[in-house]
Nucleic acid binder design. Structure first.
Lengths: 232, 232
DNA sequence: GTCTATATCTGGATAGAC
DNA sequence: GTCTATCCAGATATAGAC
């Protein structure tokens, strides 16, 4: 279908990667990071972040010791501490970068007028983003409650913000007569739940060989049927 | 609607409680629990389990120290260790009791013939169960990856088992002509995701004053519209 | 910039008094 | 049956050599 966004194309366009996120992270934390050469810092941050996400998502951030992390990242304990001043700050750094990603979703759908098309694109973009950075999304979801007060609040705001994105699109569609009247808040909530399931249960979908494009198509169809104006 | 199960009625019938689960737990672990008097043991198990669930769900099981638990439960460290032999065994105990609950769901829908009615009842019963024991469900979901090998495997089997429950009902309905042909696996997966969202995001629904009955009605309507045979 | 060695503390677990 | 006191492994964090 011509409306459908292809995953590979999307990936090219947004060009998100651990390298990119590491570079942003380095540039945004030059004061607290003791390493001054960008090349060295970014290379090690990539190793640290990949290792931290892998270990945390396997057994939880709290259960990951910095010795584990040191081994997995291939850096000594001393070296680790030149990139962050405490384990808590490492958590904070990862969480902040995750939050930034959501801006990509917003940028991707702004300017689209047709509500039905916009809803479809929003669902696809959300799923594709979480596919590209699934470890970050998983981490962000699972570690929310371990965050400090401020980060915790921001994480909840981010959840509500993306949910509202969907709710607003549905409202627009209802005003335009493209969608029928439904409980918009609840629909927004379950759309979000279905999108999150994609990265929370990746083992399940991978085992069944479900591609992200197929999952996206299913969610779109499911929601569109519910919103279709009743034929009279 | 006459088909609708009422939450309060359901609660009466199944009569699940922390006391009940504690008693079962005591009877099922008489060898390893050092306390012999049932009354004492059950009373303290209730305190321990409530405290453990509250603390774990707040900041994660790994981050909960047994000193925290001791304070919250109002028992000394020494007393705690007469009910379990290690922190890991406490995790195991909670997880096992959670798993048992699912049998209630199976019992509740067996013998129903009409697929549409059966699907509705299964959705309602799942949501109502998780509403009664939301702390157990939340714990079970969030701590899955912290479990030992065996418990971890069982937790995944439980997830797939309940999902299959829904998938089977949908298949029956399709054979009977009550539902149209759809991707049954994906529909089962997202139904499960929506049911889980109820206990994973309780703060959200509570804040919006959404009752479990209303959420159930929404999910049922959402799924039934998708499954309705196309009118030609 | 990175490593090894070590200081310091937290938390799981237990012994023994009551 | 319950508590206090204590042991000790393992964790975070840092100092100082290279």
């Amino acid at each position: 279908m011509k409306d459908d966004l292809k995953f590979e194309a999307f990936k090219e366009v947004v060009s998100l990667s651990v390298e990119g996120l590491s570079r942003d992270l380095f540039l945004g934390n030059r004061e607290s990071i003791k390493i001054k050469k960008e090349g060295v810092a970014v290379k090690n941050l990539v190793k640290i972040l990949n290792a931290a996400l892998a270990l945390s998502n396997q057994k939880g951030f709290a259960a990951m010791s910095l010795r584990d992390l040191s081994r997995e990242a291939g850096l000594s304990m001393g070296a680790l501490y030149t990139y962050f001043t405490s384990k808590e700050e490492l958590l904070h750094m990862i969480q902040r970068q995750s939050a930034v990603v959501m801006q990509v979703l917003v940028d991707h759908i702004e300017g689209i007028d047709d509500p039905k098309f916009k809803l479809r694109r929003a669902i696809q973009a959300h799923l594709f983003l979480s596919e590209i950075l699934r470890e970050w999304f998983y981490f962000s979801y699972m570690e929310t409650k371990n965050l400090g007060r401020d980060d915790h609040r921001k994480a909840i705001e981010a959840e509500l913000f993306t949910e509202k994105l969907f709710i607003d699109i549905i409202h627009e569609g209802q005003k335009a007569g493209a969608f029928r009247e439904v409980d918009t808040d609840l629909l927004g909530a379950v759309i979000k739940a279905m999108l999150q399931d994609w990265y929370l249960k990746r083992w399940k979908y991978a085992g069944r060989k479900v591609s992200v494009e197929r999952y996206a198509a299913f969610v779109v169809e499911f929601v569109e049927m519910y919103l279709a104006p009743s034929q009279e």
